[in-house]
Amino acid sequence: MNENILDKQEQSNSSRMIKKGIAAGFPIMVGYLPIALTYGVLAKQSGMTLTELTLMSVMVFAGASQFMGANMIALGAGAAEIIIATFVLNFRHFVMSLSFMNRLRGMELKWKAPLSLGLTDETFAVSALHTEEANKDKGALFYTALILTAYLSWVIGSFLGGVLGDIIPEKLSQSMGIALYAMFIGLLVPSVKKEFKLGLIALVAMLINALCIQLGMSTGWAIVAGTIIGGMSGIYLLKEEVK
């Protein structure tokens, strides 16, 4: 009897965390769908089959590098070239994953390892701003639901793009290019309102990134440099914080 009640409590706790995770992942879905559709259309035009372009979304799950990959395939670039460029572009996820996994220290590896595979710029940005769930009971379910929401919308969106072709009018799809940037801003601003120092950290990262690009660095390495060096300003700026 008693056990039964506990069981139920546990169940409702789990389903609450899953619902919260889906809700937190919803803005990512809105941002991903138009981009995934565009990727699907573009990949199809670059000569990939529907299976190939969907498989790339399933296995790679990294927007910018998939656009680049499809583009390079269309241009007839070699496999080694494409794979190395992908590594450079996606290396920033190492830094993000290190930050996120450091937050999830208490969690078992069987949860942490799959979660790490679902890290993208967007899932990281949203997860990293929900730090309190990391220490809560069933917190892993929150992050899993969040990442799966993003992942499924990416994969399904790519597939639909490949099937339907150019369905969104060009002017609208071009306007949707701002969606993910707006999401990043929407995530950053509330934190900066609470703690101005966090805005300074972001500002340092922006300037370093812009400087690196001016110096001729590739986008991938410039973002890595901006994130690492910008984050260093936090060593000083976050000093008084009791954490």
């Binding site: 830094v95 940037y181 990262a205 973002i223």
Partner: peptide, 23 residues
């Protein structure tokens, strides 16, 4: 730890600018 805790905000900054200019 402070460095790693600052990474999300640094990453957001680097992801927003100057990329947003190329919309």
């Amino acid at each position: 730890n402070r460095w790693l805790n600052a990474i999300p905000f640094a990453a957001l900054g680097a992801l927003i600018f100057p990329g947003i200019l190329s919309v």
